[in-house]
Each structure stands twice: as structure tokens, then as C-alpha cells.
Amino acid sequence: MSALISEEQDGFVCSSGFVVLQPKQISGDVLLTYLRLPLICKLMDLYTSASMYPAISESDLLNLPIPKFSTATEKAVEQSLQSARQAKQRATQLLEAAKRAVEIAIEQSEIEALA
């Protein structure tokens, strides 16, 4: 599992089974995307221990090959991720509006729900 931790989440409590990376020469979004690539996940699987709670050691994780991406590539990845996050947020808003419209249709009428 991998995730990007926001500033607001700094200091939150989580499992001790996580390795926290603070990227310096690569953006967090690009690193996260890279670590989620199917080929990199397969590579990490070669180093996992246990079966019920598979984990990769910090040293094995830090020894993974991480290429130097061009600034243009990093910007393209970041823009794509930003667009995806905005689309997800919009989809969530539309779903909530649709749920509310169904409630109104049930409680009042379809005409009221469409309004």
C-alpha cells in the first residue's frame, strides 16, 4: 500500500508497518505513481516477507531503482493527477446531488427532485 500524506495529516497515528519517505529530488505525486506501476509492484513483491501481512523492508525499498524524470514528465504526471483528483471530487458531488434528488423524488415528487 502506498499513499501521499498531506500537510494536514502530518502527525496522524498509523500502523508501524509503514515506511515514510520524504522525497527530495522527485515530487511526491511522481514517486507515488512510480511505486504503483505494475512492474515496480512486481519488483517489490520479490522482496516482501510474510504472507498474511506482506511487507518490504525500508532498505529494500530504498534500493529500488528510481529514475531521474525530466521536469516535463513530472509536470505532466502532476497535471494528470490533479485532473483526476478534480474529476473524482466532481463525481462525488454529482453522486451526492443524485442521492438527494432521489430522496426528494421519494419524499415529495419527481418534479421537485428535477428542480
Score class of each variant (00 low, 15 high):
residue 4 L to S: 11
residue 4 L to A: 09
residue 7 E to W: 07
residue 7 E to M: 11
residue 9 Q to I: 01
residue 10 D to V: 14
residue 11 G to D: 05
residue 12 F to S: 09
residue 13 V to F: 12
residue 13 V to E: 13
residue 15 S to R: 12
residue 17 G to P: 01
residue 18 F to Y: 15
residue 19 V to E: 06
residue 19 V to S: 09
residue 20 V to K: 15
residue 20 V to T: 10
residue 21 L to N: 04
residue 22 Q to W: 09
residue 24 K to W: 07
residue 25 Q to P: 01
residue 25 Q to E: 14
residue 27 S to N: 04
residue 27 S to C: 06
residue 27 S to H: 09
residue 28 G to E: 08
residue 32 L to G: 03
residue 32 L to R: 14
residue 34 Y to R: 06
residue 34 Y to G: 03
residue 35 L to V: 04
residue 36 R to G: 03
residue 37 L to Y: 05
residue 38 P to A: 01
residue 39 L to F: 11
residue 40 I to Q: 03
residue 42 K to S: 02
residue 43 L to C: 04
residue 44 M to K: 09
residue 44 M to I: 00
residue 45 D to H: 11
residue 45 D to S: 11
residue 46 L to K: 15
residue 46 L to F: 10
residue 47 Y to I: 00
residue 47 Y to P: 00
residue 48 T to Y: 08
residue 48 T to V: 15
residue 49 S to Y: 09
residue 49 S to C: 02
residue 51 S to M: 10
residue 52 M to F: 11
residue 53 Y to G: 02
residue 53 Y to A: 10
residue 55 A to D: 00
residue 59 S to Y: 01
residue 63 N to T: 06
residue 64 L to N: 04
residue 64 L to V: 05
residue 65 P to S: 06
residue 67 P to D: 00
residue 68 K to W: 09
residue 68 K to I: 11
residue 73 T to W: 13
residue 74 E to T: 02
residue 76 A to Q: 11
residue 78 E to Y: 03
residue 78 E to W: 05
residue 78 E to I: 06
residue 79 Q to C: 09
residue 80 S to H: 10
residue 80 S to P: 01
residue 81 L to Y: 02
residue 81 L to I: 01
residue 82 Q to I: 00
residue 82 Q to R: 14
residue 84 A to K: 15
residue 84 A to H: 15
residue 85 R to W: 07
residue 85 R to L: 06
residue 86 Q to G: 05
residue 88 K to H: 13
residue 89 Q to E: 13
residue 89 Q to V: 03
residue 91 A to D: 05
residue 91 A to G: 02
residue 94 L to I: 07
residue 96 E to Q: 12
residue 99 K to A: 01
residue 99 K to T: 07
residue 99 K to L: 13
residue 100 R to I: 03
residue 102 V to G: 07
residue 102 V to S: 13
residue 102 V to C: 13
residue 103 E to I: 10
residue 105 A to L: 05
residue 108 Q to S: 14
residue 109 S to K: 07
residue 109 S to P: 03
residue 110 E to R: 12
residue 110 E to P: 12
residue 110 E to M: 11
residue 113 A to P: 05
residue 115 A to D: 11
